[in-house]
Design a protein around this nucleic acid. Sequence first.
DNA 1: TCACAAAAAATGTTCAACAATTTCCCGCAG
DNA 2: CTGCGGGAAATTGTTGAACATTTTTTGTGA
Lengths: 242, 242
Amino acid sequence: MTENPPKNSRAAAIHEALRRAILEQALAPGAKLPEDLIASQFGVSRTLVREALGRLAGEGLVELRHNRGASVAAPSLAEARDVFAIRRAMELLAVDALCGRLEPAQEARLLAHVEAEAAAQPLGDATSIRLAGEFHLLLAELTGNALLQRYVTELASRCSLILSLYGRPHSADCAVEEHRALIAALRAGDAPACRALMEHHLDAVMGRALLPQPPGDMRAVLARYAGPTPPSPPRRAKARSA
Amino acid sequence: MTENPPKNSRAAAIHEALRRAILEQALAPGAKLPEDLIASQFGVSRTLVREALGRLAGEGLVELRHNRGASVAAPSLAEARDVFAIRRAMELLAVDALCGRLEPAQEARLLAHVEAEAAAQPLGDATSIRLAGEFHLLLAELTGNALLQRYVTELASRCSLILSLYGRPHSADCAVEEHRALIAALRAGDAPACRALMEHHLDAVMGRALLPQPPGDMRAVLARYAGPTPPSPPRRAKARSA
DNA sequence: TCACAAAAAATGTTCAACAATTTCCCGCAG
DNA sequence: CTGCGGGAAATTGTTGAACATTTTTTGTGA
């Protein structure tokens, strides 16, 4: 009783650890995830690692190719747009469900969360980013729709991964104000305003990352690398011309 | 090469078999799913059965209670409403994505599918119901959004299970006509009409099942059973007053 | 009839071994 | 020197058994 949770926490622990490592970019997208190595690192057998990887694959955070093992997912821009489109629809659904039906206790929870966001904002810490994301999870939770909550959680995770690939460090400055405005609109029951605020907010966070290079950018990249000075040493260049 | 699938198809096969059994109501909601029995029936070990059950639980088709094994999911009315709300939002998203962007080849696929629906309609067969559901999966597929397709598939499965619990055999008569109208609206690019048609269509199929008995219906049920003639023998009633 | 205790069954969890596939490295022809 | 098999090593897919824990049933006594 002093330390070990008697339940099936080991698989869940591996799942959570890998999940955090991926979302914090400690494991870069595309990185291989060998079962043996993970198993030995956690001091368990591959069975548990496999279960955790399977669940992560279900959440879209790792990619599982047959007989080729697992690797951190590296969604394409097209997949990123797909994820974002669905997230927008789900968050609009949450807003619709909450608009005009926000009870005082629920509003208090939202306000308290925004308060915490504002407090963590000046630090520019990772805490600030985490809290900004959790605001959306809280919205989904308040709808009382458990499935919606699950979907939003999954979609938000995928969006984090996508932002780590294509996004720049988003300024959480406006987020706090936009969250406040959304709460006010929910309280007032102004459905069009709620939807507009949420759409604008999501576009501000995610939209910009998905705009650039819609067509094939291969040419542009190659053009930059066609010059005489290599910007970064290729992984396995045999230095044929050095 | 004559009979055995050399791939990892066994777990997938069990998953598919159980899934079909549940959706076809061969396994009633609430039915227990003992690992030992399933394993021996399929001639495999519990490990694979467990994996299949876990995946089915992820799809919401089976319920997994700790130390109590798996059973076919029996969603409450509240959960049913949650699932339906999300399905509606997802299908509206699909319609939005397709509206005005339907290419001739895509329209042809939809029309061909409706044709098949109409052909199967007079039979009143299970085929008719299956085709009506697959129309929605086809819509999701045509958006090219793989994640949306996955979600719609999962939500449609859950809705099938819900209808088997709360719905009456839906008349597929109107469905064919409504599908045709939706295709026309998609082709015309009339977004409001598309959304209205889809909402009306989904409400026709699912909405009615979720309306009755919104408050606790325990009393009504008990009232029916309070009479002198038991309609069906309660499983473990101790017949204290009989 | 009820309550309690022990036994039996079922589940949760872990591990080790074997089979199949992929990947990597090395020698060899062109 | 480059490109192409061939084989070894590594990784993954899959299975079954064993043990701990929990639930359910059974049996006994008051």
